[in-house]
Write a protein that binds this DNA or RNA. Structure first.
Lengths: 215, 215
DNA sequence: ACCTGAACACCGTTCAAGT
DNA sequence: ACCTGAACACCGTTCAAGT
């Protein structure tokens, strides 16, 4: 079981979700295709278990974070850590928190995040929504940047900057009367850092939360 | 072409992404499978075009919204409208804004949203990030709730409330010492409204933005 | 308890050929 | 310009059978 999950993760890391095939996995494990069904009832379950497997590692890192005196700063640190883990493994974003039955580590991570809000002066309702919002910013940003890039980028034919640059160029050629906003931000878009974008979105949410909690 | 897109959307609406098959689509169109390739180079392009097709409708609704005097209130109204459209068509979330080459309506929608920020006192950098954050909240929330529910729910064997209730029950049986946060919010989770959850996340982001813009 | 080969019922995509 | 049948190279999943 352990090795099934390890090879699944390795395959996902090396070549993405589309490369995760029962046949490819069986080849790596040196067995038959049907063997995998002894450990797992379906591909869905395999992905849930693989996700929970690596979230276990993230959880350990998260628990190593010290408790600061500002809960919101702690929330930020945890969110950034989770985000970085998903950036490293873009496939995580699509499966994380999808099924807390199978994904018990995801549930524990949710608990760890939420616990930080217990010291804030919020109703249970607000707390629930606050944590959902934070997880949403993380997963939303990560999923956005985790979309499989066109294969010319994967092949190294063009790098990410050149890829963004092509879009930027197309946008610059749009009518400025019709697309004033796009023109306003095209230089920001060109070569932008996804991590920056995530941090900004997170800051807006945390600022809203700070206001709500009055701290 | 028009009818290819219409049938694609109808198929997606009726039975979700997994039901969109070139064979199923050809059957509805009363033609052969290969015919579709005359209109579209790949399934990916088909999905991009179908997405853009319906975003066109959303865009029209969006343009009918009056310009208020508070840009942030306008942004909220637009975000809610986009959210509702994605809730109605959960498959939209996964494809919206994925490729603005093909999805020209998505680009126009992005422009419409962003234009509202031009009246806020922000740098271009902040503006770019603000709009990204808002789109992120919408898509993030919508994707989260758009995951194909387990088929027992689809079959009507259990409704959504009962489905949430089962999770809630499992959570209530967790050790309260180990899961204080989960226990704190389980009653909020049980039977919660996804729209509420989205609105709260949006409010936090908009509050942060209001603070940043000083309005 | 664990694994297998072989089949089943699908997929997206291609292509030579038709009108 | 538009459409077709038939094939190709895959998929996830099942199952009877083996150790």
């Amino acid at each position: 079981m352990e090795s099934v999950l390890n090879e699944t993760v390795a395959l996902l890391d090396e070549a993405g979700v589309s490369a995760l095939t029962f046949r490819a996995l069986a080849l790596r494990l040196g067995g038959g295709v049907a063997s995998i069904y002894w450990y797992v009832a379906s591909k869905e379950e395999l992905l849930d278990r693989a996700t929970d497997h690596v979230i276990g590692g993230v959880l350990a890192d998260l628990e190593a974070l010290p408790d600061g005196d500002d809960p919101i700063d702690d929330l930020r640190a945890m969110a950034v850590m989770l985000f970085d883990a998903i950036v490293e493994r873009p496939w995580l974003g699509a499966y994380f928190m999808r099924n807390t039955d199978v994904q018990s580590n995801s549930l524990r991570l949710y608990e760890r995040l939420g616990r930080r809000t217990l010291r804030l002066d919020l109703t249970a309702h607000q707390r629930f929504h606050a944590v959902s919002a934070i997880v949403g910013v993380v997963v939303g940003s990560a999923v956005d940047m985790g979309q499989e890039p066109p294969k010319e980028v994967l092949d190294g034919a063009v790098d990410r900057d050149e890829y963004l640059g092509r879009y930027a160029q197309a946008w610059r050629e749009l009518d400025p009367e019709e697309f004033p906003f796009v023109h306003e931000i095209v230089d920001e878009f060109d070569g932008h850092d996804d991590r920056d974008q995530f941090r900004s979105a997170l800051e807006l949410t945390l600022a809203g939360l700070r206001l709500q909690a009055g701290v």
